[in-house]
Computed example of a mutant assay.
Amino acid sequence: MDVSPANPQNQPSPRNASLLLVEDHKNLAQAVGAYLESSGFTMDYAYDGLCALHLAATQRYDAIILDITLPGGIDGLEICRRLRKDARLSTPILMLTARDQLQDKLEGFQRGADDYLVKPFEMPELEARINALIRRERGELDESVYQIHDLTFNTNTMQVMRQGRIIQLSPTCLRILRILMRESPNLVTREQLEHELWGELIPDSDTLRSHLYKLRKKIDKPFAVPLLETQSGIGYRLIEPN
């Protein structure tokens, strides 16, 4: 999990946004809280279900980050249900959990969750999803979706899909994909990619090639039509098929 300080080049967090983090693992809660506070969020914490219900009912938050597995007999799914059905709370809720099966995700959405992030996760993705939820609730969200053929990348939610299938990518592969989709159909040189990814601290020559191999394996290999084109010795581009 990436717990490094927030990147000042990332999209800024919504102004005066307050979050309730419901997480029983205090070390994780502290790490998440420190990261989000460095991005400008105000944080409150709950380490069990009863405390979470009390805070959510008595305080106003812009979003709630809610772990599913909690002590005290009230799990995150039940908290979500009570907040939606009993308290009629419309605050955006992001489920944070180690459960990664489709049925678990569907159950979370059925209980009223707005988004779902599986542990382990990267901090920038958590921040991006929280930003998107808050802006959508405030009516400030201007969806930024890149699309090439049947490949889409929503840069607010950091979700990549092709043919309706969600594609999980590492943070570096997400950044590469965003650059290539932004510049498409133009060619992006190797030097340009390396500079945007790492600035002056460029790693060894095989690092970029390795990330591009992983990216191609996820967005092209499972599908009949390839989109990522390599021009040997020059660079890369994403193009619509003929």
Rank of each mutant, 00 (worst) to 15 (best):
G164T: 08
R216M: 02
D104Y: 00
P203L: 00
H25V: 13
A31V: 13
E194A: 15
S184D: 00
Y236D: 01
I166P: 12
I219M: 04
N154S: 11
H211A: 03
S18V: 01
N27M: 13
Y213C: 10
K26F: 11
I167S: 10
A98D: 01
R237T: 13
G73K: 12
M95Y: 01
E37C: 07
G164I: 11
S4I: 03
E143K: 11
S4Y: 06
K85V: 04
P241R: 04
N154H: 09
S39M: 01
S18T: 08
L133A: 08
R129F: 06
I79M: 02
L215H: 14
H195S: 08
I166L: 15
I64Q: 11
S184V: 01
Q11A: 08
T152P: 05
S184C: 03
T42M: 14
E196N: 15
Q11P: 03
L36I: 00
E127G: 14
L212H: 03
T91A: 02
Y116A: 02
H25P: 03
Q231G: 06
G108A: 12
I176L: 09
G139I: 05
R81E: 08
R190P: 05
G108P: 10
Q11G: 06
P14D: 01
T207V: 12
P171V: 04
R88I: 11
D114T: 00
D62N: 12
A46P: 03
V22M: 07
R165I: 10
R182T: 01
A34C: 08
D150S: 15
R135E: 15
R88F: 10
T189I: 01
S184L: 01
D150F: 15
R82F: 11
R135S: 08
R162S: 04
P71K: 09
P185C: 00
K218A: 07
G164E: 14
T157D: 08
K26I: 15
I234Q: 15
P241V: 05
R190E: 13
L126T: 11
G164R: 12
I79G: 02
R237H: 12
L201C: 09
L227G: 04
Q9E: 15
A57H: 13
K26P: 02
